[in-house]
Design a protein around this nucleic acid. Sequence first.
RNA 1: GGCGACGUAGCUCAGUUGGUAAGAGUGCUCGACUCAUAAUCGAGAGGUCGUGGGUUCAAGUCCCACCGUCGCUACCA
Length: 505
Amino acid sequence: MTRFYVTTPIYYVNDVPHIGHAYPTITADAVARWHRLLGDETMFLTGTDEHGLKIQRAAEENGVTPQEQADKTSQRFRDAWEQLDIANDQFIRTTEKRHHVAVQELLSRAKANGFIEKGSYAGHYCVACEAYYIDDDLIDGNNCPIHERPVDWLEEDNYFFKLSALESELTEWLNSDTVFPEGKRNEALGIVKLGLDDVSISRTSIDWGIPVPWDDGHVFYVWYDALINYATAVGFGNDEAEFGKWWEQSHHIIGKDILRFHCVYWPAMLIAAGLKPPKQVHVSGFLLLGGKKLSKTGLTQIAPADLVEDFGVDGFRYHFLRDVSFGPDSEFSYEGMVSRYNSDLANTLGNLLSRVATVVTKKCDGIGPKPNPDSPLRPIAEQSYRDAAVAWDQFQSPVALEAVWNLLRETNAYLERNEPWKMEAGSTEVATVLGDALEVLRLAAILASPALTRGSTAIWQTIGLSGSPEEQQLPAAAEWGQYPGGLAVAKNAPLFPRLKVEDAS
RNA sequence: GGCGACGUAGCUCAGUUGGUAAGAGUGCUCGACUCAUAAUCGAGAGGUCGUGGGUUCAAGUCCCACCGUCGCUACCA
């Protein structure tokens, strides 16, 4: 049996879930769903990153413990993902015991291998921020950029990770088909080529973190704790055999803002600990709003819940999977979302289902006929599956979905050419045409199910099939001609009612 | 400053290692149809592929410069 392991970034609980979090999460969910259709043993991980100064400080401000603070905000992410039909197999939290064990184990191994040593870090320190700043950040050369008051020159003992010793290993890893798309791999190579400094991985100034096992006064700096979650979740430090099996198939989905950490630091940490670097890292671009990065700060924040209210779960998921390609930045707009929903979901797919159901009702007494083995739609459907399979394998959801919609458009054209509504009721001609269309709907329900978690099941039931599209297994289920015929086809209300632009908020 | 990415039809985007007369969806125009969610189908208009050079028999695709946009250069995640 093939295994497949996919992860999203773990999200920092200092923030509320927004569409910038939703996009990589939906992509990972869809890719995981595709692999389940293929019958792969699949592990899909997401979670929250809960240590660090910001959480500690937020907790103090709210008069709660850091753990309570983390509990509350972590739950928001769980709720958000539930709303979006995210079917993750695990939800990891970096405050879990198993994670502490894994972090201490992994970094102890790196230390034993000579990649961690003590040093001291010195820098401009703002007491109010409890943080260091580099020269370029300072205002007028000596003032904290946030508090605008003088910083102190402070020195503290830290443990350093000897990143500089791993340049050749990293270059080799980056050159072996690991980071996608290629442009992002080049960026990572560029970072390595510029020369890597050793990085400080512990702090003595805060205590909301995972203790350094060999030195009581230190906790690990939040990044070096966070990255390890991907290993923790599949058994590292707990069940080595299990870990090994999953880790061979690890795929990380990240945003380009954290490329440095996932394509340089993280593989280096794994190598230092004597482990394999990740199998693949897929780097997405940013969502842009009017050409500007959709960041966690400012007015650009858009709550997934608001969009789900307008577009439904399917409309929300479909938009991101269809319109946001993996790699370059993408423009997000409400109008674009409406347009995509109407053209693809309401018109091409939803309307096809409606017209087929109506004609079956009128011409076949509501009983769906069998498809024609030699249908002209057959080769198109087969190509559609092949294209989708390749695209999903490359995490290219827009290409995969376009392949399915091409089949749907061809089917609308096929109906137009044959005009079954003009044919004699009960004739073999009308049965053939409608059987083919029903077969396409069966296929589309399966192939679109990673995106349309609800609509695909609705189609399945409307055309009289039992069970659900998610239970089907590819590639066998994609073979033409499996719609059995003789099933009652329901004439329901429109599956995806058209949206009017005036609905825009 | 250094490094990098991007700039292709009104809009959102595809365009493998340079090679049939530049593509899709959407929008627009015209026509058809009226089974269907003012849906569908067909036809058409629409691009000097940011600008200027260069390499080549041949460049959107390689090289250089410039313009524009953005990102990284964080011990914030």
